[in-house]
């Protein structure tokens, strides 16, 4: 083969052009994505005013976060809320998205229409979505409560975003509304990829729909499920905008919607009246977020890779 000859010959001298091909992407990606990540982690060992904290304090910021009141409560609260949010979104968005993907991939008319339609919200900016739903859920003017009254569920009305029991659920539902297109697209693509013969054979054998889903579609979709889970996990643990636009940066009500993103923002930049900003402490929170995301991603990669 011609190619292998060239490859062999060129082993002798350094092929500079490869470097030139790679360098632009490598530099931009490294300097503005990878290095900042590690430099931000380095900042977590420093304290001091301003954007560049200068005083080295070792693990001081972490000790403060893990042991000192009220930082420790805020941190564990954010972790808990993030986990809750993740679980709820997995259910509302991904499980239901899976369900819709199965319906859409049936041989029905208009699948293409539904595929596009389900994806439309995803094209919107998170904060636009958040603002729209905060207006819809407003306890005085909001449409949602009137809709409930209209269909006779008026007794169940609660200030959805003001009640600590419902606020995070409401946010999870809005996240699911916004992003349901993603699992739907992933799953429909994967189901479409399953050989028709396999499904055909199963149908001829008289396998029921639920059996078909359980024994054929689900096992073949495991890698896709893994990807969707990872995307959801990473997205949720770095989420900020939805909380910002629906319940504000202080995790109102009663910190029930305070997640890592809002905690990081508040700590790093300071917020309303007299809240002190602390970049070093913020960097420590970002580092913890990174670790959690890393562990989560590795975990999902492991379980979904192993069983494929």
């Amino acid at each position: 083969m011609n190619l292998s000859k060239i490859e062999k010959n060129s082993f002798k001298k350094f092929r500079w052009y490869i470097l030139w091909f790679l360098l632009p992407a490598l530099i931009i990606y490294t300097v503005f994505m990878i290095l900042p990540l590690f430099n931000s982690m380095r900042m977590s060992f420093y304290t001091g005013p301003g954007i560049v904290p200068k005083e080295f304090i070792g693990f001081g910021n972490y000790i403060k976060l893990f042991t000192q009141f009220p930082f420790n409560i805020r941190l564990s609260n954010a972790l808990l809320n993030n986990i809750k949010l993740f679980i709820m979104v997995m259910f509302f968005q991904n499980l239901i998205g899976f369900f819709f993907a199965i319906l859409i991939t049936r041989k029905i008319k208009g699948t293409k229409f539904f595929r596009t339609l389900f994806f439309i919200p995803t094209a919107l900016s998170v904060i636009v979505v958040g603002f729209i739903f905060s207006l819809i859920l407003n306890p005085v003017w909001g449409i949602f409560d009137r809709l409930l009254e209209f269909i006779g569920f008026g007794a169940y009305i609660t200030p959805w975003l003001g009640n600590p029991k419902t606020a995070l659920v409401a946010i999870a539902l809005v996240v699911a509304w916004h992003n349901i297109g993603i699992p739907v697209v992933f799953f429909t693509a994967a189901i479409d990829g399953i050989s028709e013969d396999v499904l055909e054979a199963a149908r001829i054998d008289g396998v029921s729909l639920s059996g078909e889903v359980r024994h054929i579609i689900f096992p073949l979709l495991k890698p896709t499920i893994g990807i969707v889970s990872i995307l959801t996990f990473v997205g949720n643990f770095s989420e900020f905008e939805i909380v910002y636009s629906m319940t504000g940066i202080s995790g109102s009500p009663e910190f029930a919607t305070d997640i890592f993103g809002s905690l990081f923002y508040r700590t790093t930049f300071g917020t309303t009246m007299n809240v002190v900003s602390d970049v070093g402490l913020g960097a420590a929170i970002a580092t913890i977020m990174f670790m959690i995301i890393l562990i989560g991603v590795l975990f999902f990669l492991r379980i979904f890779k192993r069983e494929v």
């Binding site: 290095l35 430099n39 643990f237 995301i293």
Partner: peptide, 9 residues
């Protein structure tokens, strides 16, 4: 990796 984790730097 969410790039925003490097925001500070």
């Amino acid at each position: 990796i969410p790039i925003r984790l490097g925001t500070i730097n």
